[in-house]
Design a protein around this nucleic acid. Structure first.
Lengths: 142, 142
DNA sequence: ATATAAATTATAATTATTCTAAACTGTTGA
DNA sequence: TCAACAGTTTAGAATAATTATAATTTATAT
């Protein structure tokens, strides 16, 4: 459980003003035991459940993007109509449950020896993401 | 270079009527030497360049989804405002060039021994996709 | 040929996201 | 302390991809 002053320091140190909206969003995102996988909509709902004044949707978008750019959030590649974010910024991979549209972290021992042996000339690798799509065993796939 | 009659057979055999729109789309998608990575917009533009009568955008969407459901196309996971599709339906992975928003197939020898050792209980694995995001070496990442 | 189901179409509707411009707030330094 | 300025928030409009609708057209089986 992080203190408010810790969030203030963190934001200031990365050049973001610690506004009350951002502090609230920090609290919702980072005061958790487990990784939080969310869409903007999940986050907005989560905030409004915990708060009587509302935070504008535009601010939620702005803040999530600011946090992503500062490296406090990761965006996860899923071909979907929405973007997914992850509070776990360590190098790790995901299952995506197509039944529930839910992301699940892969434990380290799920993927063995992932090793990229070549790269495109003149480019640097920014990220390597593995996405394992799963669905209920008895589901009709048509 | 596949013949029209081959596309007709293929469509019929999967329960899709071989309409002239679908045949034209088959031609654009599958009469190629190399894998085609595309967005709906890419495809629509490609069609309209080759055709004097137009195919409705709704039909392009319908057809791409039908082909995907029949397994003639793969959808690639990228967090982007658009969906990307691939005519290469074999098991393979991708680079995504963030400078140009372009997908590039990974050769088989790029990723070594990708091995999924565990799965979510009660689910079956539908796909495993690796996406390697790259960008120009000297690019500012903020 | 004709009936029927499937497909196409233009257009409207929906949804996620970004933009805009005005109001507000945090911070700096006189 | 407080004025000024840049950074932030905000509601709502704008944009863009995609899906839905409902009428028309087409493929095919009889």
């Amino acid at each position: 459980m992080l203190k408010n002053s810790e969030f203030i320091d963190k934001l200031r140190s990365s050049g973001l003003r610690p506004t009350k909206q951002r502090l609230k969003i920090c609290e919702v995102l980072f005061n958790r035991d487990k990784t939080f996988h969310f869409t903007i909509n999940d986050l907005a709902k989560n905030i409004s459940e915990q708060l009587n004044e509302k935070i504008s949707l535009a601010t939620v978008y702005n803040t999530v993007h600011a946090f992503k750019n500062k490296g406090y959030l990761k965006e996860i590649s899923i071909n979907s109509d929405k973007s997914y974010f992850d509070t776990n910024i360590t190098n790790h991979h995901h299952f995506f449950d197509e039944d529930s549209n839910e992301l699940i972290d892969c434990d380290e021992d799920v993927i063995e020896n992932l090793n990229i042996k070549k790269n495109i000339t003149g480019k640097k690798i920014n990220s390597v993401e593995v996405l394992i799509k799963v669905a209920s065993d008895n589901q009709n796939q048509n």
